[in-house]
Design a protein around this nucleic acid. Structure first.
Lengths: 325, 325
DNA sequence: CTAGAATGTGTAACCGATTACAGAATAACA
DNA sequence: TGTTATTCTGTAATCGGTTACACATTCTAG
């Protein structure tokens, strides 16, 4: 391994000079700078980030805490995070936490042990209690979270409900996400704020987790439980897809007999037949912005907007009936 | 920040003793060990991994290089990797590389700068040339790769083709992945080894990348190009799903008019209607085993099987016609 | 009872960077 | 020319751990 000492020796200067040339601090003569640069190239030297990190008590790494990597919403989120982080010279340490487990605390300790510069977390109740460090909450955001990136879920709910009542709703079933997930409540609120003033008939079914397995069993269950429904507002695309499949299997035609709207706009929602109409959450954008916000927090830039609220959008495909207007 | 010095002072011993107690090397008296342990608890001390890493010239981190995080095959892979790594006390640094770009080299340098213990890579042509370190290739594996985890793609191709010819194939279209992806060739070989001895009519269409966008345009293209087909063997589930959607949109019934088989068994293939019959690649298993293999390589365990070949399986759902036997 | 092995402990060097500080060289200016 | 300000450079301390080495103590055995 080539160290700064080797470079110094090769260039005939001290390590201090090499370091100054590298980091462009302090005074370095033109002559010295050139010698150092050519030595660096010749020896193919690159500084050891670990040694830097030890001295600086921080590093060029950020920790990422996710509740379940295998959730299809996350890949795009991660891509946004990775891209933004990389552009800012940071790399990402991955932490996957089972929903509800206390592994989050372990990861926070681990991140601290690695001198990470900050943490991005989509896990509720992530505390930097013991190890205070910059942190940005993602997606599952609470009131008290200082820095956060999230989507306007009330609006998302409104958009979804609006799309439904514009299209001969009939009997509506709302599949609501678990109350423990902050966004789920807001969506339901949004939906109800639209439905309640009308005389549309609706029922609410609350689900537990967001896993595929649960989506499948829920899909069967609701048909058994509620019989004839004409419109379904799902808590996310996973559930919407599961419901669509179950409906088709039972011989219903979509959207003629049952119309379905999802939430998230995961990449797959456009690959099913009929294409799923859904509320788009800008996953890539959210990740990108969150990483950017974290980096700015790390750099102690002045930040006017610490809580970034992104707007969801209605993406119309073919799982809803024709609009009435 | 609590350091080993603070613990030493608090326990009334030297830092060397604390270190020995921590790592359970060397001699430490029972009495000293107890004092150290209670000091650690009282002060809530945890060792700084960066300082350790600097001295040891290695760390408890492994680098992960993926060609495209947003590919739906990867989440499960990552979950497997993360889980296995965590069980072995390692954490994962994420690297996303655009297909074909040279960012891979940059990441390898970055990993080296971070003293990672090893690298897991699904990017072709990943070289530890300049910075030799343990490496395990994943998924996209070449002959020369020393340590690798991959699936038996020839067998996968055979399984897919077999499933098709067992079920009134008619005219078959093979959508083959890009020749640059090692596995794609093997799959095609497997498929042809089954089809060629029969008198089944087939055509081959080669695709470029593995993106959703390409899948959609390809789906349209093949219907325009080849007109009536009765069976389609897709290069992966993404393409299979896109084809199914396009077929349904054009009024074909699946599997009656056209039967489709995919590859990968991504979680979504069970959420479409009709359920996609496909060849399952054990993504979680692959990730788990790869991380495990890497850790063993890092530990310099003796390893009997450096190249782990996993077996794909046929997962029967509803996108193929009834078997004839 | 004593030599030698086994056990326990602390001091200090080391890992590879950054930077405070002091001293040397050069520039600016009267 | 002498004085001061500016630029340049090297030595050494530092970050928080690990471990080689030396020394002290205890144990074992003859």
């Amino acid at each position: 391994m080539v160290t700064i000492k080797d470079v110094a020796k090769h260039a005939g200067v001290s390590v201090a000079t090499v370091s100054r040339a590298l980091n462009k601090n302090g005074y370095v003569s033109e002559k010295a700078r050139e010698k150092v640069e050519s030595s660096i190239n010749e020896l193919n030297y690159y500084p050891n980030e670990v040694a830097r990190s030890l001295f600086q008590k921080t590093s060029k790494m950020i920790g990422l805490l996710l509740p379940d990597i295998s959730n299809p919403y996350f890949p795009l989120l991660m891509k946004g995070i990775e891209e933004s982080a990389r552009e800012n010279g940071y790399s990402v340490i991955l932490g996957n936490v089972e929903e509800g487990s206390k592994a989050g605390d372990n990861y926070m300790r681990l991140f601290a042990q690695q001198n990470v510069a900050g943490v991005l977390s989509a896990v509720e109740g992530t505390l930097s209690h013991h190890h205070p460090m910059p942190i940005v909450m993602l997606d599952r955001v609470l009131e008290g979270d200082d820095y956060a990136v999230y989507t306007n879920d009330v609006k998302g709910g409104i958009l979804a409900a609006q799309a439904i009542i514009d299209r001969k709703p009939g009997k509506v079933l709302i599949i609501a996400g678990p109350k423990s997930v902050p966004g789920a409540i807001d969506r339901l609120l949004g939906i109800l704020s639209v439905l309640n003033p009308t005389d549309v008939e609706y029922e609410i079914f609350e689900t537990g987790s967001y896993t595929i397995k649960e989506a499948e069993t829920t899909a069967k269950e609701i048909f058994d439980l509620y019989g004839k429904m004409n419109s379904i507002i799902a808590s996310n695309d996973l559930f919407a897809l599961a419901v669509m499949k179950e409906a088709q299997q039972r011989g219903y035609q979509i959207p003629r007999d049952i119309q379905v709207i999802g939430y998230d706009n995961i990449p797959f929602s456009q690959l099913v037949y009929p294409g799923l109409t859904t509320i788009s959450q800008p996953a890539f954008q959210a990740g990108y912005q969150a990483a950017d916000l974290l980096v700015r927090q790390i750099r102690k830039d002045t930040i006017s907007n610490k809580r970034i609220k992104l707007d969801p959008e209605l993406v119309v495909r073919d799982s809803l009936r024709e609009s009435e207007e």
